[in-house]
Amino acid sequence: MIYWVLKATLGSLLWVVYRPQVEGLEHVPEDGPAILASNHLAVTDSFFMPLVVKRRVTFIAKEEYFTGTGFKGWFVRTFMNAVGAIPVDRAGGDAASASLDTGKRVLSEGRLFGIYPEGTRSPDGRLYRGKTGVARLALQTGSPVVPVAMLNTGELQPIGKRIPRVGRVKIKFGPSLDFNRYRDLVGDRFIERAVTDEVMDALRALSGQDYVDEYAAKFKDKGKQ
């Protein structure tokens, strides 16, 4: 209930200020489970993408987003609830497993699960190699994957900028991808890589981004050296 109240209030404000321009929303199924796999250019991707989808979209978020104190803690927690995020402890070696378990639970309930295959925001606006978690979810649950391209959120909210500048947000949804032909090959790392690469290729075509065959997190680490 709180999700829909917050979406109606905070969401209405975001609609007025940022006037989202959306293409391909008909590709999001009206019912049943689906994975919304998006590129990731800005923190606000997790606000704007769920905003334009009529159904609830669930993302995972760091647990500390829900435990802050004071006004800032309340504000962040409110926004996380408004966009349908659920807390996951991503510390330690079980982080990926916890995230996938959450995704499987959401999908088993017939809901929409949002995921960023790159694993982190793009450091420079290019599209980076996808992690295979999106493939595991698709193969283990039989859910279709809907590619989603955030087209200009990185320009409105560059890295380091807390509040995005005012501008029209542009989002594009592509036709869903069905990987049920590989259901008997769950756990095959070559198939998981092939499925992930197909998702990333769809995202590249939708977004028009240059593709980098390297993990974004690894690229960021190299920049710190």
Results as ranks from 00 to 15, higher is better:
19 R>F: 03
127 L>P: 15
153 T>C: 15
79 F>R: 10
72 K>I: 05
206 L>M: 07
5 V>Y: 12
147 P>N: 12
100 L>R: 09
158 P>L: 13
101 D>N: 11
152 N>M: 06
125 G>D: 05
163 I>T: 13
216 A>C: 07
214 E>C: 01
83 V>G: 01
189 R>T: 09
166 V>A: 11
185 L>S: 05
169 V>Y: 04
84 G>F: 01
164 P>K: 14
41 L>W: 02
161 K>T: 15
125 G>I: 14
123 P>I: 14
136 R>S: 12
112 L>Y: 12
120 T>F: 07
77 R>F: 05
17 V>E: 04
190 F>A: 15
189 R>A: 03
2 I>L: 15
74 W>L: 04
159 I>R: 15
184 D>W: 10
212 V>C: 04
76 V>W: 03
191 I>S: 01
204 R>A: 11
195 V>W: 06
149 A>L: 14
67 T>C: 01
152 N>D: 11
180 N>E: 05
73 G>F: 09
175 P>V: 03
175 P>K: 11
33 P>E: 00
123 P>Y: 14
179 F>G: 10
216 A>G: 14
198 E>P: 07
9 T>K: 11
219 F>C: 02
221 D>H: 06
183 R>N: 02
193 R>F: 00
209 Q>M: 10
39 N>T: 03
86 I>F: 00
164 P>N: 14
136 R>P: 04
186 V>D: 00
82 A>E: 07
177 L>W: 07
47 F>I: 04
31 D>P: 00
62 K>C: 09
59 F>D: 05
43 V>Y: 02
191 I>D: 02
31 D>W: 09
5 V>C: 07
133 G>N: 10
161 K>R: 15
44 T>S: 13
188 D>R: 00
210 D>P: 00
